[in-house]
Design a protein around this nucleic acid. Sequence first.
DNA 1: CGTAGCTTATCGATCGATCGATCAGTAATC
DNA 2: GATTACTGATCGATCGATCGATAAGCTACG
Lengths: 219, 219
Amino acid sequence: MERAPTRKRENSEQRILDAAISLFATRGYAATGIRQIADKVGLTTASLYYYAQTKDELLLRVMRVGLGELLASGEEAVAASTDPREQIRGLLKVHLNFAAGNPERARVIDNEFQWLDDEDRESVIALRDAYEQLWADAITEGCRRGIFLVKNVSLTRLALLEMCNGATHWYRANGPMSLEQIVLAFEDMAFALLRTDEPLTVAPAPGAGLTVETAQSPQ
Amino acid sequence: MERAPTRKRENSEQRILDAAISLFATRGYAATGIRQIADKVGLTTASLYYYAQTKDELLLRVMRVGLGELLASGEEAVAASTDPREQIRGLLKVHLNFAAGNPERARVIDNEFQWLDDEDRESVIALRDAYEQLWADAITEGCRRGIFLVKNVSLTRLALLEMCNGATHWYRANGPMSLEQIVLAFEDMAFALLRTDEPLTVAPAPGAGLTVETAQSPQ
DNA sequence: CGTAGCTTATCGATCGATCGATCAGTAATC
DNA sequence: GATTACTGATCGATCGATCGATAAGCTACG
């Protein structure tokens, strides 16, 4: 009766979190069973409870760590320059590296926070809001200086973030474009979105006045 | 022993589908139990199986009907004009009306097709691909005519679609902007994305060559 | 008109499988 | 011998699905 060798077989804690990320990303939190996680790591379900007290503690840890890294990188990026253009460039790079560097984790963070209990969800959403505020501030400051010209800061921020998040769905490391090329392409698209001072092509947009911080956050 | 009045009480079939849409959208297909659907409609689980043979048949019907409507509206929109600009305007309006008009259904269609079996998923994805091809064709034709100037058609199409899909997350019917205003704002953003013939603001984008149909489809 | 016989729409009860979680026990290491 | 890392067995709850039964409406016939 061989049992798995105990003690320092490997770092079970990280392997459990990685397995959880992969399964949560492909099947969703609710549809992922603790038995699947245990099987993937090579443990029993009982052993999982040595590392985490509940299933949703696994989800919480994934989100806290991931969003913490994203927020820290974002703050570092905006601190690197006072030029809103450079800040947006930095944020784009940070976001795309985050989304494409570990798409599964990014997808879990994007889609699964509804399963956290109220208290945990609030703290996670606070992290996300703080990160999104970095974008809003950069866009707003660019507008104030006349560098960017957007009709609606919130709508533009949402469009930019949603655009980048799409990368978590279609990006493949062995795809036809390198991550560097994708970042450059997104820079072009982002700055096209932010510079609306060119002559309008069509429709002078009569009713759409300039509103700031209008659209609600998801969930 | 009162039982619910039978026959023509109301259209149970549609009420079941509506309940399924709402629950699938907020909790996800996998996490939605047939008992929840039955409770919402005011029936028993047994009665559900009078209308659908399996749980995933409900999902399939929601997707087939929804994507069928979207594709039909899209084809109608592109047929209305030969001008790529007008086609894009029409597609934007169709897509945003679809996304904002019934956000729950749009979210189900966007996110839950992984739960269909292989055969059904293929047929549903074929519908979605046909719809996305309408966008790709309009963008490509606009580029051919020199009206649009984009570096990468696929990337631009993905960015535009992802941007619009974001509306399913933050749009509220009683929000600060009317749907018409949002459509106009998205037109501005979309045409800004498509017209890259203005002088580049920063970074001449050295490595990013012009590639067509590169990025893979999701899933 | 009346009613027999079929169809439609629903029920209560229940199936085996799987869910997240618990607990007492144990081998290996310190 | 204390601590760490893990197991096998098992709990009650819930899952999707199936069963036979049945009340209510419909149709055809006498």
